[in-house]
């Protein structure tokens, strides 16, 4: 499988800024764009539809949506509609979602594996306009629940995963997997789980586009890149279970203090507690040369797709340009 490169945007920004950055990324040779789906930001599909209008080649989709807030028939409808605007370019990332955001609207993340599996099955059935009812343990649709329009080319479904069982599910049923990690050690372990899932389902790793969905920051000097990534890393540390923290020699007490500082909006203390070890564990950041080296290490673990996620860098436009002109060519020329 060819090496490909994606970029993630959080639609907190004005629609025209996200679209501007996407056109820039497409021109520089990025292959995919992923827009996050959180109810407290701008709507993912409206953002994608605008982007689809101003781009020609780049693949685009939610990264990732979840079946708790959005019923899979609606996800299928959205990606099928988008597929009409950008035929053959649509991809769909789906995962269990973010527990904190779901709790804000009193939604419990029940049976995540079963829920994601059934959601993927329903999306595929809807896209194929299959007849007949779907009787899952979480979702049920009647035989009449079909689209009244043609759905176009196949939309590959990527499963966003972090834990071993969700990674195995991605290996078993995903067209792709979005591994929510940045450290080569974590990615390597994740790929093993994807492979286990794939083999159990009678598939091989080569059937799956394995993407590292990273926290990324690049700048001329490594120091500015690291400074930009600190808030993102602070939140990752605060949200990580103790098993993950211990694996990276990060003190659980320190993480708890950081969590409390963030919750109480003590930004200075929270961000000041982020150290080099945390940054190395949970992000890819540095100068273009440093980033190239780190991305190279990730490709050696077996990923086929590298996604630059938030914050991208201290200046988004400059960072996209730097990545496209100084990092990407190193891999595209291979």
């Amino acid at each position: 499988m060819m090496k490909s490169f994606g970029i993630e945007f959080v639609p907190m920004e004005l629609f025209w800024r996200t679209t501007y950055y996407t056109v820039q990324a497409e021109r520089l040779g990025y292959d995919s764009i992923w827009i996050t789906d959180h109810f407290n930001n701008r709507n993912v599909y409206i953002s994608l539809a605008v982007i689809a209008n101003y781009t020609e080649r780049i693949r685009l989709g939610p990264g990732v949506t979840n079946p708790y807030l959005v019923h899979p028939v609606m996800t299928a409808q959205s990606v099928a509609s988008l597929n009409e605007v950008a035929p053959g370019r649509v991809i769909c990332g789906i995962g269990a979602g973010d527990r904190t955001t779901l709790e804000m609207v009193d939604i419990e993340m029940k049976r995540p594996l079963r829920t994601v599996r059934e959601a993927v099955e329903i999306i595929r059935r809807q896209m194929e306009r299959e007849k007949g009812a779907y009787n899952g343990k979480v979702f049920v649709t009647s035989s009449g629940a079909r689209f009244n329009f043609r759905t176009g080319e196949k939309v590959p479904i990527y499963i966003g995963a972090q834990g071993p069982k969700m990674l195995q599910l991605a290996g078993a049923i995903g067209d792709g997997a979005l591994i929510n990690a940045s450290h080569p050690g974590d990615i390597e372990k994740a790929i093993k789980q994807i492979e286990v899932g794939a083999e159990k389902a009678g598939r091989g790793l080569e059937d799956i586009d394995v993407a590292a969905y990273t926290s990324f920051s690049v700048a001329d000097d490594g120091k500015s890149a690291k400074k930009a990534v600190v808030p993102v890393v602070a939140y990752i540390v605060a949200g990580s279970p103790s098993s993950i923290l211990e694996k990276h020699d990060i003190s659980v007490e320190k993480a708890e203090k950081l969590r409390s500082d963030l919750a109480n909006r003590r930004w200075g203390e929270a961000f000041g507690a982020v150290d080099g070890n945390m940054i190395d564990a949970f992000s890819i950041c540095g100068s273009p040369e440093e980033c190239t080296e780190k991305i190279d290490a990730l490709f050696k673990t077996g990923i086929t797709h590298f996604v630059t996620g938030s914050p991208l860098g201290p200046n988004v436009r400059a960072s996209i340009n730097m990545f496209g002109t100084q990092v990407l060519p190193h891999f595209k020329e291979d």
Partner: peptide, 29 residues
């Protein structure tokens, strides 16, 4: 000018129609 538009805190004051015109020209370089 583009850097300024991407960085300003007052980006939301730019009318959507004008923003789309700028994207039209950007798309065509």
């Amino acid at each position: 000018l583009m850097d300024c538009l991407l960085e300003t805190k007052e980006g939301s004051t730019v009318p959507a129609s004008l923003a789309k015109t700028i994207l039209y020209y950007w798309q065509r370089d």
